[in-house]
Amino acid sequence: KELVLVLYDYQEKSPRELTVKKGDILTLLNSTNKDWWKIEVNGRQGFVPAAYLKKL
């Protein structure tokens, strides 16, 4: 499993997105899109802007 660090808080703006908090370490599911990465948070899957995340 690949992990990502959340660099900035992000509030979901659609049902396909997820809310994340700065400092969270989460599972990366897909990073093929350069702008939006798919991650998992508490069993939910969704997208967060790639600029808000850093691969560990």
Rank of each mutant, 00 (worst) to 15 (best):
K1P: 15
K1T: 14
K1I: 14
K1F: 15
K1A: 12
K1W: 12
E2L: 13
L3S: 08
L3I: 08
L3F: 15
V4T: 02
V4S: 01
V4A: 08
V4K: 00
V4Q: 00
L5Q: 08
L5W: 06
L5G: 02
L5I: 15
V6F: 01
V6D: 00
L7N: 02
L7E: 03
Y8G: 07
Y8T: 09
Y8H: 15
Y8L: 11
D9W: 03
D9P: 05
Y10T: 01
Y10E: 00
Y10G: 01
Y10A: 01
Q11N: 13
Q11Y: 14
Q11W: 15
E12Y: 07
E12D: 07
E12I: 11
K13L: 11
K13A: 13
S14D: 12
S14C: 08
P15A: 10
P15E: 13
P15Y: 09
P15Q: 10
P15H: 13
R16Y: 14
R16Q: 14
E17L: 05
E17K: 08
E17A: 08
E17T: 08
E17G: 12
E17M: 06
E17Q: 13
L18V: 13
L18T: 06
L18Q: 05
L18C: 09
L18H: 04
T19G: 06
T19V: 06
V20D: 00
V20M: 05
V20W: 01
V20I: 09
V20K: 00
V20H: 02
K21N: 08
K21Y: 15
K21I: 08
K21P: 01
K21Q: 11
K22Q: 11
K22A: 13
K22G: 06
K22P: 03
G23V: 00
G23E: 02
G23R: 02
G23I: 00
G23F: 04
D24G: 05
D24V: 05
D24C: 08
D24R: 04
D24P: 00
D24N: 08
D24T: 10
D24I: 04
I25G: 00
I25P: 00
I25S: 02
I25H: 04
L26M: 07
L26C: 12
L26V: 15
L26Q: 05
L26G: 14
L26W: 14
T27I: 14
L28W: 02
L28R: 01
L28G: 01
L28I: 05
L28Q: 01
L29M: 08
L29H: 07
L29A: 04
L29Y: 05
L29I: 15
N30T: 08
N30C: 10
S31T: 10
S31R: 08
S31N: 08
T32F: 10
N33K: 07
N33W: 07
K34Y: 09
K34D: 12
K34L: 12
K34T: 12
K34W: 08
D35K: 13
D35H: 14
D35Q: 13
W36S: 04
W36A: 04
W36M: 07
W36E: 05
W36T: 03
W36H: 05
W37N: 01
W37D: 00
K38S: 09
I39H: 00
I39G: 04
I39Q: 00
E40C: 11
E40G: 09
V41C: 11
V41F: 15
V41E: 11
V41A: 15
N42R: 09
N42E: 11
N42F: 09
N42V: 07
N42L: 11
N42M: 10
N42Y: 09
N42P: 08
G43C: 08
G43P: 02
G43N: 10
G43Q: 07
R44M: 11
R44K: 13
R44I: 11
Q45R: 12
Q45L: 07
G46S: 03
G46W: 05
G46Y: 06
G46Q: 02
G46H: 05
G46L: 06
F47N: 04
F47P: 00
V48Q: 00
V48R: 00
V48P: 00
V48E: 00
V48M: 05
P49Q: 03
P49M: 03
P49L: 04
P49K: 04
P49V: 02
P49E: 02
A50E: 03
A50I: 04
A50S: 13
A50H: 03
A50F: 02
A50M: 05
A51E: 10
A51Y: 10
A51M: 12
A51P: 09
Y52M: 10
Y52W: 07
Y52K: 05
Y52I: 12
L53H: 00
L53S: 00
L53R: 00
K54S: 11
K54Q: 11
K55P: 10
K55S: 07
K55C: 07
K55M: 14
K55V: 11
K55A: 07
L56W: 10
L56N: 03
L56A: 04
L56R: 03
